[in-house]
Amino acid sequence: MDASEVNNVPLWPLLVYGAIVLSLVGVILGLSYVLGQRGKGRAMTEPYEGGIVSEGSARIRFSSQFYMVAMLFVIFDVETVFILSWAIAFRELGWYGYAGVAIFMVMLVVVLVYEWRMGALDFGPDGKKILAAYKRMQKPAF
């Protein structure tokens, strides 16, 4: 957090490096555009979906589970920010800071437990449930 330390490290190499990387990527893309052959295949204008003719729009709707992941990420990644700021200064903060973060962690864990129990962490179908349902279905047959 010392402002003077930042200034000791020259930043221009980073910028130069970045510039080189950008131009390199540009060159690669440009080159392949220039060098690449031209032509049109029979099925090139259709999406490749394993050889099966594409049906309908690709803008399909997704399980809200994905949004759940996004939310989980947001929650926990933002928590990381706080832990980060503690981690860098935790020696100065000592046990006092430790207690603070411990409380914070407890909250995190409680949230985690809650989400776990709510099924937010269950991705995809629950195999055991399906199996149980399947067995129930099978029973009358016997």
């Binding site: 490749y48 979906e49 803008r59 399909i60 994905f66 996004a70 990644d77």
Partner: peptide, 17 residues
Amino acid sequence: NNKYSLLGAMRGAAQMI
């Protein structure tokens, strides 16, 4: 704009984040 691509992308994004 391909269903499989999108699926893969969603999975990949979920996994990565």
